[in-house]
Computed example of a mutant assay.
Amino acid sequence: MTVQLEALVVDAADPVALARFWAGVLGWTTAEDRPGAVTVVPSDPGCVALRFRSAAAPSGASRHHLHVTSTSTDDMAATVERVLALGGRHLDVGQQPDEEHVVLADPEGNALCVIPPWNRFLAGTGLLGEVAGDGGRATGVFWSEALGWPLVWDEDDETAVQLPAGGTKVAWGGGPVAPKDGVSRTRMEVVAAAGTDLADAVAELERLGAVRVDTVLAEGDSVTLVDPSGTELVVLSPR
């Protein structure tokens, strides 16, 4: 393990409002624990935190979207209604009429899917069942080695990793990956593991396949890289 996952970061025009939306959807709490950012803190063991960081004009497309689980058909319907009541909307991404999940967007247009209760892949993951990202097998292997999370899915260029104890799965849907249109408005934020300084953590991530870039996406001691899919990630110094 080189780094520990802090949060999925989302650039937001109004991070306070967007964090309030997601806290309402998931039933989690919020904390202003980083400069210029609000974090939605999981109450489900093993679930990934969401951090909304102030960006005057988020420009790049999101390279991740979120899958929210349900426990019954009534719970699924209630979750969809909760998203809409909090300011979300339905989103057309070309899904077919017979697809069973519901595609929605948060108030700033970030996609989320509400997943039916009979979906076995996300059974037991918690309410935030999956962070779905752009990338092929090389990206999943990179993150598995960086985080020390085992590959729980590895088939046809699609991969997923998960903590051994369970919780949110982080997955990549395989190629081809859409061309980037600027800095991704979503990215992983990680912290150097205990006993590892920032420089050593960055060097190990580079050895695993990340590439350092000039973009600065976090305040304080941090380094920005891109993973094998070209998606930005930020490495923070240990607190």
Rank of each mutant, 00 (worst) to 15 (best):
G36I: 11
A37W: 02
V38R: 04
V38D: 00
V38F: 01
T39C: 01
S43M: 08
D44R: 07
D44N: 11
D44Q: 09
D44W: 08
P45L: 10
G46C: 12
G46T: 12
V48Y: 05
A49N: 08
A49M: 06
R51L: 01
R51W: 00
R51I: 00
F52C: 00
S54W: 14
S54E: 15
A55C: 15
A55M: 13
A56Y: 10
A57D: 14
G60C: 06
A61M: 10
S62G: 13
S62Y: 09
R63Q: 04
R63K: 04
H64Q: 03
H65D: 00
L66S: 04
H67V: 12
H67Q: 13
H67E: 15
V68C: 03
S70Y: 03
T73L: 14
D74C: 01
M76P: 01
A77H: 12
A77N: 13
A78T: 07
T79Q: 08
T79A: 07
V80D: 01
E81L: 10
E81I: 00
V83W: 03
L86D: 11
G87I: 05
G87L: 05
G88H: 03
G88N: 02
G88W: 02
G88A: 05
G88F: 02
R89T: 09
R89M: 04
L91T: 02
D92S: 10
D92V: 08
G94A: 05
G94P: 07
Q95W: 06
D98I: 11
E99R: 09
E100P: 04
E100S: 12
V103Y: 00
V103K: 00
D106K: 05
G109I: 01
N110K: 00
N110T: 04
N110Q: 03
L112M: 06
L112Q: 00
V114Y: 05
V114N: 05
I115W: 11
I115A: 09
I115P: 05
I115M: 15
W118K: 09
N119G: 02
R120C: 05
F121L: 13
A123F: 13
G124E: 02
G124W: 02
G126Q: 10
G126E: 06
G126F: 10
A132D: 11
A132P: 03
G135H: 00
G135M: 01
G136L: 05
R137P: 02
R137M: 03
R137G: 04
A138S: 14
A138L: 10
T139I: 12
G140S: 04
G140Q: 05
G140F: 04
G140D: 06
F142Y: 12
F142D: 07
W143H: 08
L147T: 14
G148K: 11
W149V: 13
P150V: 09
P150T: 10
P150Q: 11
D154W: 12
D154L: 13
E155K: 15
D156Y: 14
E158S: 14
E158V: 15
T159R: 09
V161E: 10
V161F: 09
Q162W: 06
Q162D: 06
G166D: 13
G166C: 14
G166F: 13
G167V: 07
K169M: 14
K169S: 11
K169I: 14
K169L: 12
K169F: 00
W172F: 15
G173K: 08
G175D: 06
G175L: 09
P176F: 05
P176Y: 06
V177W: 03
V177M: 03
P179L: 01
